[in-house]
C-alpha cells in the first residue's frame, strides 16, 4: 500500500520537474528530439516513455520558452532542433532560484 503511494508520488515529481530538466539541458546547447532524450537520460535517472517528451516540447514552444527549426540532413530526414529563447532564459533563471530556495527549505525538514 505504502509502496503504491511512493510510486505515484515519484511519478508526479518526475512529471513536474521534466520541463525544468529540459530547459536546463537546452541552456548549454541546441538539441534535436532524440538527442535531447539521450541528454535527459544521461543527466538524470528519470525513465520516461520517450514519446512524452514531444508534447512537452510542444508546450514549451507554445509558451515561447523554446524555439525550433528544421535542419535538412544528408539522409533526407531532417532534424528538428530546439533552443532556449530569451523568454526561456529569463524563466529558467526564476525557476532555478525557486528550486534552490525550495530544496534548501526541504533540506531543513529532512
Amino acid at each position: 500500500m505504502n509502496n503504491l503511494f511512493v510510486h505515484k508520488w515519484t511519478a508526479q515529481v518526475k512529471k513536474g520537474v521534466l520541463s525544468f530538466i529540459v530547459l536546463n539541458i537546452l541552456q548549454e546547447n541546441e538539441y534535436y528530439g532524440y538527442e535531447l532524450i539521450e541528454e535527459v537520460k544521461k543527466n538524470t535517472d528519470i525513465e520516461i516513455a520517450e514519446g512524452t517528451l514531444y508534447p512537452l516540447l510542444n508546450r514549451l514552444k507554445k509558451e515561447e520558452l523554446v524555439s525550433s527549426k528544421w535542419v535538412e540532413q544528408e539522409s533526407g530526414i531532417p532534424r528538428k532542433y530546439y533552443s532556449l529563447s530569451e523568454k526561456g532564459k529569463i524563466n529558467l533563471q526564476e525557476m532555478k532560484e525557486y528550486w534552490v530556495n525550495m530544496s534548501s527549505s526541504i533540506q531543513k525538514l529532512l
Partner: peptide, 20 residues
C-alpha cells in the same frame, strides 16, 4: 517500444492544439 504507444503519449498535444 521506447517511444511508447502513440495514443498515450500524443494525448496532451492533441488536447492543447484542439483548444487553440
Amino acid at each position: 517500444e521506447k517511444l511508447g504507444t502513440p495514443k498515450e503519449f500524443l494525448k496532451p498535444v492533441i488536447a492543447d492544439k484542439k483548444i487553440a
